[in-house]
Structures are given as structure tokens and as C-alpha cells.
Simulated scan of single mutants.
Amino acid sequence: MSRAQCPRCMRPQSHCLCELIPQLASRTRVLLLQHPSEVNHALNTARLAALGLTNAQLVVGEVFEDLATLLNPPGYRARLLFPGDDAQLIVADVVGEQDLPLLLVVPDGTWRKARKLLHLNPLLAQLPRVTLPEGAVSRYRLRKAPGPGALSTLEAIVQALEILEPATSFTPLLRSFEALIEGQIEAMGADTYLKNHGHKS
């Protein structure tokens, strides 16, 4: 028999995270394009980001038929948050009243799946890219990162928004994320966690 699930955060009712999810406003609009393989993942941080930001949208798929519309909401200029040779380091979005705020487009999936999203959606791959400064430390603790500075989707969004909008704190978004991690560690048991993850910093 399956456990009752919260329809909002998609967690078991006994581990619902909704009380920890803030409602934060941002000038930047966040568009999350989630690979279908991530939807039912226990650590679905993109969903937490979409729930915690009032100016965010989560779309699931591999090929997005309405991508041109998604990437061109009135009053925004789109940038893809993804590394690349031509990616520009993300900086504070110090803009005048005449300048358009950013639409930050964030592919969500493993690196391989995220690259596949770009391959299958040429409009996405053609967007100007921005990337985060090096040296970020993930709080993930449960997935082996492909390299130093690799962050979960939620952490990457928080860091990007903190840079873009330094007058606002977006760290409350991480409360539900940290509770999610603690719950997963508790579920697997301390011995299993230490055996599989304890030696990693």
C-alpha cells in the first residue's frame, strides 16, 4: 500500500515540506525545464524552487513544443544558466528602469539529461549562457557530484538570485532542501549513510 502523498510538494504526508517552503518574490523570472526522469525523484529540488518562488514556472518534458513562447515572456530577456565556452559569469543585475529583467532558464536533470534537453531543443541551446562563479560548495551530501562546484538545481538558483538581486535573501529556499536531505539520511540510516557518503566532504 502506497503512502499518502502531499499533492503540492509530492512528499509523503508524514514528511510534507510545505511549511518550510517560503513564498519569495524576485525581479528575475525563473523558468525550470525539467527532464521527465526527475519528476518522481525523491530529491526533486526543482519543484521546491518552483513552489518557493512566486515568479517561477516549472515545465516537464524532453521536447517543448511551445518553447518559443516560454522563452519570450513580455518584459524579460532570456539567459540560460548552463556552463559553456561562451558562458558569461553571472553578475548583479544592476539595471535602470528601461532595462528588462532576466528570464533565467534552468534545465533540470543529470548533466547528461540536461545536455540532451539542449540537443533536442535548439532554441534552448541558442540562448546566451550565464554561469556561476567557481568554488561553490553543495549541501547535497547524497549524490556524487561530477566535479567541484556542482550544485543541485535549487542551490544553483539560490546562488544565481543572490548574485542577481543582492538586496534580497533567497536562502530561505534552502530550508526545505535541507529538511529533505536530513529526511533521506534518516531514512537510509546513519550506518548506510556513513558507509556510502561519510568519507565525502
Rank of each mutant, 00 (worst) to 15 (best):
E62Q: 15
Q34W: 10
D191M: 13
R11I: 10
R129I: 09
V105G: 13
L154S: 11
L43G: 05
L33A: 06
A49D: 09
Q98C: 01
H197T: 03
L103F: 08
A56T: 11
T153C: 13
H197E: 09
Y76V: 02
L43F: 15
E97W: 10
L102A: 13
L89K: 04
T28L: 00
Q88Y: 02
I163T: 13
C6W: 10
S14H: 04
P133L: 11
E38H: 11
L151S: 01
I157A: 04
P83L: 00
N196T: 12
S138A: 13
V30P: 00
D108Y: 09
R47V: 11
R141A: 14
A160R: 12
M1T: 05
A190D: 14
A160K: 12
F82P: 04
R141E: 14
L32F: 11
Q57A: 12
M1S: 11
H197S: 07
G189F: 13
G135I: 00
A136E: 15
I157W: 07
A190E: 15
Q13K: 08
P133Q: 09
E19Q: 12
G183T: 04
L32N: 05
L51W: 02
G183V: 06
T110H: 06
L173W: 06
R115V: 11
L118I: 11
K195D: 13
T171L: 05
L123Y: 03
P36Y: 08
H35I: 07
G61F: 13
E19M: 00
R3F: 15
A187H: 08
A56G: 07
L17S: 02
R27H: 08
A179L: 07
S26Y: 06
P22S: 02
G84M: 05
D99G: 11
L174W: 01
C6H: 12
L48N: 04
S14F: 02
P12I: 03
A187L: 11
E165F: 06
P22F: 03
V39W: 00
P83G: 06
I90C: 08
S26T: 10
S26R: 04
K200I: 03
L104M: 12
A50G: 10
L124F: 06
E155D: 07
K195L: 13
S2H: 04
A156P: 02
K200R: 15
A156C: 06
R27D: 05
L132N: 08
A179C: 08
I21P: 03
P12G: 07
L24E: 01
K144N: 10
D66F: 01
K144P: 09
R27A: 03
A49H: 09
R3M: 14
Y76N: 05
T69G: 02
Q184I: 13
L43E: 09
N44G: 07
L48A: 02
V95N: 02
N72S: 15
K116V: 01
E65G: 00
F177A: 02
F170T: 06
N72D: 14
S14G: 14
G96E: 14
P172N: 10
L67W: 09
P166F: 04
P22N: 03
L89M: 12
H15N: 01
S169H: 03
R139L: 12
L124N: 12
C6M: 08
E65T: 12
A150E: 14
R112W: 02
A156M: 04
P22I: 00
L194Q: 15
A114G: 08
A42H: 11
N55M: 06
A25P: 00
A187G: 07
L174I: 11
G183E: 09
L31H: 01
S26P: 00
Q159I: 11
L174H: 05
L180C: 11
R129M: 07
L103T: 05
